[in-house]
Design a protein around this nucleic acid. Structure first.
Lengths: 342, 342
DNA sequence: GTGAAAGCGCTAACAT
DNA sequence: ATGTTAGCGCTTTCAC
């Protein structure tokens, strides 16, 4: 097992120049295949690999991409991460995964650290509360490729965007309930500062309009989508004189909460009360009755993210202003027992 | 906004030598506070940060630690990751998170890539099927700190180990069922090549022995702990002439499977059949009835991991053979409805 | 298609 | 407590 010093010994052994060895190892197009072969063979035999620190230092490329997610354990993000990582890994990039824990302060710190560690690009889903995106400016200013996904800037920000079709998701969720005969549909939404909830809410509203179902303000809640909050809201709903016969919640945790409250109160789901959640969290399928939900296809999102950031990084030398329209990834209504007609 | 070149301009501006600036920026103990202050102040004003690539290159330290997990989305690992990352981040280390997807081949590749990227240390939970650990040799041979956790080498391997008290977990799970009056307790275990299942199984066996409950081989299953496998085994169990009145499953997915089969067959849980799982997966609390399970305290595991790897990295220059006994992290029996006496 | 030569920005041994 | 000095291993013009 050699000491893995430099490739100069390879150059010497082969009687060629160090620069040729470097180029051969890096698959430089102008090096003959024969030379490449020779060099790589010897490198393998000598158990030699390029020192990535030296390479990064010299070339100013780290082959590292940072990704900021609110929480690594959320099913949607976990799946996106897996896909992105696999894809980037194949292309020779490493992923630094960072969690903001939905704190804008942490997010800001993460951006700075990522910047300081000279990542080649950044992918980010912002926190629920990020309305000011100026902490990302350091990246755009220094031309570091940046792509937002899922939770993205609501107003224009000079970065690429990949997002799900939340409007359509909200619309289809509500429409589904309406077509099942629901006349009074509650909605649990997150803070409207977040594009996700704004769009899902808009879809819900438009579905009601389209089918001439009255919008009832007292049945619509805006708050962080935790189990506790959801339970509280749903308890309120069931205390009303005119109770709803269906609910669309902007995440699955809230849908599960709705199911639990209904169970406690002896309200039959789906017979008396139908539920549609959002995200297709695995929990929504193991619970009984299974919960109808909107699948966001995290694999597609992840794939799109990898493609986008790679394009940006590779195209960065040629064109500079290549920010295009947001990429909208599809959603699919996934029907389970919580909204089946009996 | 400056061009962020080198700290030589800081040295010049302050009339001191570059090495002093370097030391000041790195909080070298032999630099006066006054100098440090001055240097840091100017660096801030100039928006200057050290180039980590140059630092890494020169010092041969990447300030990066790799962690290999079977799957990022598993609750236990997701929580461990979160804790480890937060702690390491605070100490100025970045975490490269890698997934083996439980494939020994991928695991091997990950170790090699991590090695090639000169990480300062590696943390790993091996795959379910890793019995040969020689692909980790490259790390130990090159003195790169390595700590295994959760799923660890069964035989001696020269690396630090952090693991849960699986024997105790298995014992307490079985004992709990026994004390509740169960006379016939089934067990769903994973492959015994994995320390986790071996130990939990041993605990189960010993509890049966202690309380003189007969061990019934036909009620014990060894297979990958997927939902499908679990459902299949449990269906078999309920087809037997003498049915069990309790089950201990080595993960929560299987426990959920057991619950679902029972539900389908109209067997009342916990009245006729009591269930204890393992891991305290969030799903075990949202399902109804809630599932009794063994909490592995991933936060404690994560904390221990961070401490251990940091110690190893920092002590690496002084002592070399400092591998100590495995660190055993505690478990807690968490009782829910699936094993309540009625 | 290959070679020569010039550093990239930093750290650390040694000196004082 | 601070300065001097010598590279770390690689990429990349520029030349042929």
């Amino acid at each position: 097992m050699s000491k893995n010093k430099t490739f100069i010994e390879i150059a010497k052994a082969l009687g060629i120049s160090p620069s040729t060895v470097s180029r051969a190892l890096n698959d430089h197009p102008r090096i003959s295949n024969e030379t490449k072969q020779k060099v790589k063979k010897l490198a393998l035999e000598l158990d030699f690999t390029l020192n990535p620190m030296a390479s990064s230092f010299r070339s100013n490329k780290t082959q590292t991409i940072g990704i900021i997610v609110p929480r690594i354990s959320f099913y949607f993000h976990a799946t996106v991460l897996t896909v992105v990582q696999n894809l980037l890994w194949k292309e020779g990039y490493q992923l630094i995964i960072c969690q903001s824990n939905d704190s804008p302060e942490v997010e800001k710190e993460l951006v700075n650290t990522l910047y300081a560690s000279r990542v080649d690009g950044v992918i980010a889903a912002t926190t629920l509360y990020t309305t000011d995106f100026s902490h990302y400016d350091i990246l755009t200013r220094k031309q570091i490729p940046l792509v937002f996904y899922d939770r993205v800037p609501v107003n224009y920000y000079p970065a690429q965007i990949v997002k799900g079709d939340d409007y359509k998701g909200g619309f289809e969720a509500a429409e589904h309930l309406i077509k099942l005969g629901c006349k009074s549909i509650a909605h649990i939404s997150g803070p409207l500062t977040c594009n996700l909830y704004k769009d899902r809410y808009a879809g819900y509203i438009d579905a009601l309009k389209k089918y001439k179902i009255p919008y009832r303000q007292e049945m619509v809640f805006f708050h962080e989508l935790s189990m506790d909050n959801a339970v509280e809201s749903i308890q309120k709903i069931f205390k009303m004189e005119t109770k709803p016969d269906g609910i669309f919640t902007a995440n699955d945790t809230s849908a599960i909460g709705a199911l639990m409250v209904a169970r406690e109160l002896g309200i039959e789901v789906p017979k008396e009360f139908k539920i549609v959640g959002y995200s297709n969290d695995p929990r929504s399928s193991i619970i009984s009755p299974g919960i109808t939900t909107i699948d966001q296809h995290p694999e597609i999102v992840g794939q799109q993210l990898a493609i986008t950031i790679l394009d940006l990084i590779r195209g960065t030398e040629t064109k500079v202003e290549l920010i295009t329209e947001p990429t909208i990834t599809p959603i699919t209504l996934t029907i389970r027992e919580s909204s089946k007609v009996l």
